Each structure stands twice: as structure tokens, then as C-alpha cells.
Computed example of a mutant assay.
Amino acid sequence: MQLEPDDSQSDRPVPSLAAPEFAAGDRVRMNALGRSRHPRYGERQAVVVRKVAANGWRVLFEGRTSLLTIHRDYLEKVEPV
């Protein structure tokens, strides 16, 4: 007997084929998916501190004093101007 996949987990981020990779010190912001899930952060930028777990990054957002762990599919790199 083979079970069909459960669609109840469809609210999880869908892993992208070309998942973004960051390095400590990179400037990032929430992408469209991240902003829809966490609207408080809006266009606020953050600095990547380190990678944690397989899909998480510790970041420090502007105006904050504590680090947050954010899923990689919610972040996009900000190119320097």
C-alpha cells in the first residue's frame, strides 16, 4: 500500500532549485515570499552572521540588537551600489 503525499504542509517554503548561498558579512533583505510571511521586516536590510542548520541563516537586521534565524528561501542578497 503506497501513501500519497500529504498536501497539508503546503504552507512550508518550497525549496528553490538554485537556493541562494550567502557568506558572513553579506547584506541581505527579505524577498517577496519573506515579506509576505514576515511583513514587519519590509525592506529592512540585514547582515549575514553565519549559517545554522541546513537552510537557516543567522542575520542581524538594521535597528535590532539580537540575531534572528531566517530560512534561506526568504532572503535575497543586496548588491552593493
Rank of each mutant, 00 (worst) to 15 (best):
M1V: 10
M1T: 08
M1C: 03
Q2A: 13
L3H: 10
L3K: 12
L3D: 02
E4K: 14
P5I: 00
D6M: 02
D6K: 01
D7C: 06
D7I: 12
S8N: 05
S8C: 05
S8D: 06
Q9S: 06
S10W: 05
S10C: 06
S10K: 11
S10Y: 07
D11A: 09
D11G: 04
R12Y: 09
R12M: 06
P13T: 01
P13Q: 00
P13I: 00
V14L: 05
V14H: 04
V14F: 05
P15A: 04
S16T: 13
S16R: 14
S16V: 10
S16L: 12
A18H: 15
A18K: 14
A18W: 15
A18G: 06
A19E: 14
P20C: 03
A23E: 15
A24T: 15
A24V: 04
A24Q: 07
A24E: 06
G25L: 05
G25H: 04
D26A: 05
D26V: 09
R27W: 10
R27E: 02
R27D: 02
R27F: 05
R29A: 11
R29E: 08
R29D: 01
R29N: 04
M30R: 12
N31D: 03
A32P: 05
A32L: 14
L33M: 07
L33V: 08
G34W: 13
G34S: 09
G34C: 07
R35L: 07
R35H: 07
S36A: 13
S36P: 01
S36M: 07
S36I: 02
S36K: 15
R37M: 15
